Amino acid sequence: MQVNETLNEGLKRGYTISFTAAELDAKVNEKLIEAQPTIEMKGFRKGKVPMAMLKKQFGPRVLGEAMQETVDGAIAKHFETSGDRPASQPDVKMTNDDWKEGDDIEIAMTYERLPDVPEVDFRSIKIERLVTTVADAEVDEALGNLAKSANNFEDRKKGAKAKSGDQVVINFLGKVDGEAFDGGAAEDYPLVLGSNSFIPGFEDQLVGVKVGDDIEVKVAFPAEYGAANLAGKDAVFECKINAVKEPKPAEINDELAKQFGAEDLAALKGQISERLGAEYTGAARGVTKRKLMDAL
């Protein structure tokens, strides 16, 4: 085996590692000798098959395994000898792409080594440890956000127009080229305007509708739409507005807590405080780690 350095710039390293065909052949023979006592072949007793026949029968199969073990062993020996610690998996490839059995082998290996860490007297380093606490106001803010996410919807006043964020309850029938299509119809469907749960442009055209309105919504299915028969097609949806409802944040009480898997409101507050505390502790640990790295 021969190792030659090809790159040494900063932390970047490059080497070529070459093996003679004889070295590889010796590895193949070694593996065949190791397996010989267990091999049976017609006309020979177990363990008595001649090496020449073993090599002819199993040599090509063993060759790849021997080559991999030889390369892996050479790389491991290089790192042991050089003391380098690669920052990531080294890039290893054969340089002779037209290699065939009987040729010498040469591989090229490049990597970036981890820098040497100097001896440090840690007793001289002082780092301020950050202690975090979760304020009641922060828990209340998080509760408010949960209440908003668990909105209830209540009917708007008679004649009120739908706004973005409202829920409209609709009957709709979708048609392409004047023909209804599968999955394009529903009754009393609750749709939150601005949720983007329908195809682009659909919900925008329902802003401003009132209960009792009949409206045609004209849209185009995206070219990448999941149903191939609708992808890129223009469509018209005949919509009947049955209700227009405005969002009302859920009340912050035991019922809200149960929606989020807590036994009661006190338990939910405890869970929120614990989660916020874990987030703050993680952030404080990150700041402390950065200060330590700067000090080093």
Rank of each mutant, 00 (worst) to 15 (best):
I252C: 12
V209S: 07
V131W: 02
K163V: 10
N152S: 14
Y225G: 01
Q259V: 04
A235V: 07
T132A: 10
D204K: 06
I170R: 00
E187H: 07
A231P: 15
K240Q: 13
S197F: 05
Q259T: 12
I199D: 10
R129T: 01
E246R: 05
K258R: 13
E246K: 09
A257H: 06
G159Q: 08
N253S: 06
A231G: 10
K258M: 10
N196C: 00
A243H: 10
D188H: 15
Q259Y: 04
D136N: 14
R156W: 05
I170M: 04
L265N: 10
Y225D: 10
N242W: 11
T133M: 05
A135D: 15
N242D: 14
N145C: 03
N152L: 15
E238N: 13
A147M: 00
V168G: 00
I241Q: 08
L230A: 07
A150N: 11
K245I: 02
D254R: 03
P222K: 01
V139R: 05
L193Y: 05
S149V: 07
D213K: 02
G208W: 11
E251L: 11
A147Q: 02
I252L: 10
C239H: 01
L256C: 11
E238Y: 06
A147C: 07
A137M: 08
E263R: 14
L268T: 03
V168Q: 01
G165C: 10
L143A: 04
V211D: 08
A223E: 15
K240Y: 10
E238L: 11
A142F: 11
F237K: 00
A135M: 13
Y189N: 04
I170Y: 01
V236E: 06
I252D: 10
I252W: 06
A243D: 03
L193N: 00
K157I: 12
E224C: 03
D204Y: 01
E255N: 15
E138S: 11
A137N: 09
S197N: 14
A267E: 04
Y189V: 00
N229E: 15
T132F: 12
S195D: 06
F260E: 01
V131F: 04
A223I: 06
V244F: 12
G194P: 05
E203S: 00
E154K: 14
F221W: 09
N152C: 12
G159C: 04
